[in-house]
Design a protein around this nucleic acid. Structure first.
Length: 425
RNA sequence: GGAGGGAUGGCCGAGUGGACGAAGGCGGCUGUCUUGAAAACAGCUGUGGGUUUACGCCCACCGGGGGUUCGAAUCCCUCUCCCUCCGCCA
């Protein structure tokens, strides 16, 4: 959520930010109008409350009932006025909040200006696009041929966008998860095991509601949402709390499955395991002071890069332009790995600084060293790689002419010594 | 699933209608004392909102929401969470 003070004090900056995001800036005036109305009502209501408090105290000190009666009578009338004003106030605040909830974060000034995806900027590419002396296959051919991906039975169980991993395929994914978590722990993140179902307020606090309600799975009976990313519970961890500055930065890593309805992507990426309703991800997350968040962003980006580098992937860093930035993000870098079978760059990680946007929404604060007013920390999130896509990367990059797949060195300790996946005929 | 008990400030803990934003203790900060520290003593020590050039003033908040009342931490309703016992289960 944006700071309401920004609308009062520097509305042009907000307008400019919204325009960079390719959205209308007319809402700014709406917000300002609601805010003015809100304060007007508050002033009226509080003046009456102050009067009522004073008189009620007097009443309490009077012993004579006849003397009290007229005061009680007039305060009853004041109370009715207060109730009416507070009713109006509640309504205005509801409308204001509903509006604020739909407004995205403002882009960092360094973010390249652009209308959409096409105008993202590749800021560096690491490694060469590999040459093969055979025709590399896409994973949706390799997987079934090796017997490690079963699309048919996945669909039989749950429909489209579901699959089953068999044997070494399932184990390879588990190896990736375990290896990544251990890597992030070495990089200074604390591992968390989190609930995969969370309540409405948690999803709201992370900024996923109401904007992304359509993309979430929900248990109506218990009012739980299935997490769409570990970022949601990781943000929720400190909701409503005050963190001591001394404890910052807090860095966490967590493996969770992620559940997404993908209604917006109907018909897109239906082939293979690139985009499913259920996928696994290892996430990194950090809470920092505003001064430290840029450094934390760079660290998180390089931590995610290290994951790709150690797996031997060719990858590139793509900086999102203003028009492609996610709802809560001020600045975002995507990491894309080269998948020779599909013949495309696959987004495996997205590293963002959300500034104080999530913190304000989730009411997460920190107390500065040596006391003083509590302040809003910055929050950052980044994928330590989405699993199905990392798995695609391994399968397609490490495939051999005979159709087998070599297991990358770093993963072998988790593969029980298996060095290669071969078709068992 | 059944029965009961709880939720108060950073922490512990008192408080059953007006003098309670809240006793007392712990912790923290400041000062006195001290060469320094400790001890002792004194003072300060919550969050959000409105208003003000400012000092300040005002409003709200005792798990969340609603109600009764001139007035609610205190009475009523409701929700959430925690604890104990029984049953069931991995």
């Amino acid at each position: 959520m944006l700071d309401i003070n920004l609308f009062r004090e520097d509305p042009d900056r907000v307008r400019a930010g919204f325009e960079l995001r390719q959205m209308g800036s007319g809402v700014v005036d709406e917000v300002i109008a609601f805010d003015a109305r809100r304060r007007e009502i508050i002033q009226q209501s509080e003046t009456l409350k102050a009067e009522r408090n004073t008189v009620s105290k007097q009443i309490g000190q009077m012993r004579d009932a006849a003397e009290r009666a007229p005061l009680i009578e007039s305060m009853r009338a004041v109370g009715e006025q207060i109730d009416a004003l507070d009713g109006q106030l509640r309504q205005v605040e509801e409308e204001l909040n509903a509006l604020m909830d739909t407004l995205p974060n403002l882009p960092d000034p360094r973010v390249p200006v652009g209308a959409g995806e096409e105008e993202n900027v590749v800021i560096r590419t690491v490694g060469q696009i590999p040459e093969y002396d055979f025709e590399p296959k896409p994973h949706w051919e390799l997987g079934p041929e090796l017997g490690i991906i079963d699309f048919e039975r996945g669909a039989k169980l749950s429909g489209s966008r579901f699959y089953v991993l068999n044997g070494a395929g399932a184990r390879l994914q588990r190896a990736l998860i375990a290896w990544m978590l251990d890597l992030h722990i070495r990089q200074g993140y604390e591992e968390k095991y989190l609930p995969f179902m969370v309540r409405t307020e948690t999803v709201y606090g992370a900024g996923q509601l109401p904007k992304f309600a359509d993309n979430l799975y929900r248990d109506h009976e218990e009012d739980f949402y299935m997490v769409p990313t570990a970022e949601v519970p990781l943000t929720g961890l400190y909701m409503g709390e005050i963190i001591e500055e001394d404890d910052l930065p807090l860095r966490f890593t967590a493996y969770t499955p992620c559940f997404r309805r993908e209604k917006m992507s109907a018909g897109r990426d239906v082939r293979g395991i690139k985009r499913g309703h259920q996928f696994d991800k290892v996430e990194m997350y950090a809470y920092t002071t505003p001064q430290d968040s840029e450094a934390a962003l760079q660290k998180m980006l390089s931590d995610a890069e290290e994951t790709c580098a150690l797996l031997g992937f060719t990858y590139r860093i793509n900086q999102l332009c203003t028009g492609d930035l996610g709802f809560g993000a001020e600045i975002t870098y995507d990491i894309e790995i080269w998948a020779p079978g599909c013949g495309e760059w696959l987004e495996v990680s997205s590293v963002s600084n959300d500034g104080d946007f999530q913190a304000r929404r989730g009411n997460i604060r920190y107390r500065p060293e040596g006391g003083g007013r509590v302040q809003l920390p910055h929050t950052l999130n980044g994928s330590g790689l989405g699993l199905p896509r990392a798995l695609i990367g391994v399968l397609e990059n490490y495939q051999q002419a005979d159709g087998s797949v070599i297991i990358p060195e770093v993963l072998r300790p988790w593969m029980g010594g298996v060095e290669r996946i071969e078709a068992t005929g």
